[in-house]
Design a protein around this nucleic acid. Structure first.
Lengths: 152, 152
DNA sequence: CAAATTGTAATGTCAACGGTTACATCTGTT
DNA sequence: AACAGATGTAACCGTTGACATTACAATTTG
């Protein structure tokens, strides 16, 4: 299975807030237009990001802002906020291996540390990348777009 | 989302074949008993592992064997054989970001290399662990069971 | 109060997972 | 040649999560 598009949408949202937050009020409709999904999908995502303390959302008046400096929010923070992984385990273990089989009785003990190593490797890499890294690169590509336009 | 239990079941299967292969004919019913799932689930898995060249399955007569030395089969080989990941991308990207928004136009370019880094970190770790590592540890725990029994 | 916006419930569609039954097919044995 | 034991698959079913969408109550500012 793949990691849900909620993750890339969430990063898209952060980038939009940071890039457009000074000039526009960031509403779920605004974000929905940029991401190209239904506004309710955005609102549900904003609810998750807010619950994780990564953003603030103004009720009534509307408008979303980022709660921390961008370089203090890692991909892992967003992943945790947005991806539903049961019991925080990346690997789904089969539920009831036979207790009357020696292998069935010991498969869990023999495997768990290795699965954790894989999960840890993935999470370590996610913790090493911040939203700022992503946003900087996106802005770099936006600037390249503009410089091409300028030359024409 | 979690990685399907097919992955841990597959490793369970390898361990069973290696541990019991000398004394028993390894049928889908035999494996189903140890894993505690329906034999058809096992057969479907065996079909995938066979397609990946990791095992051989005897039609008619029945019986499964491992096609390569256990230390030449990595967790990644099994993962690839058994997990359906569209286009081999761990992250599902939202399909149609707005082309009229600068962020929407550049989110892909700004993000792809970072997502690949995360995926690569996970795959690198999976490639570093072999089925033999898992099976050795399972056998170690089986031996510990027996030594406890002996003392009683 | 009115307008804009968020929060959320209710529904629907779709795909993947896993379970199960049924049966055609294959192969060694008698 | 028939049989017994297996595998390979098709055809279902139920459950879950993703994502879309409509509708509306609740909130806040002007």
């Amino acid at each position: 299975m793949q990691i849900s598009s909620r993750f890339t949408i969430a990063i898209h949202i952060f980038a939009c807030i940071d890039v457009f937050g000074k000039d526009y009020k960031i509403t779920s409709d605004f974000l929905a237009s940029s991401v190209n999904v239904n506004p309710v999908v955005i609102r549900r995502l904003l609810t998750q990001l807010k619950a994780a303390g990564l953003i603030t959302v103004a009720r009534g008046t509307g408008g979303t802002a980022i709660a921390k400096p961008l370089d203090e929010i890692t991909f892992y923070d967003v992943y945790l906020a947005v991806e539903c992984v049961e019991d925080n385990k990346l690997f789904h273990f089969h539920d009831n291996p036979s207790t009357s089989c020696p292998v069935g009785r010991n498969i869990h003990k023999g495997l768990d540390d290795k699965l954790e190593r894989v999960q840890a490797a993935m999470e370590r890499e996610m913790k090493s990348i911040t939203i700022k890294d992503a946003k900087d690169d996106i802005e770099k590509y936006i600037a390249m777009e503009n410089s091409v336009t300028d030359k024409q």
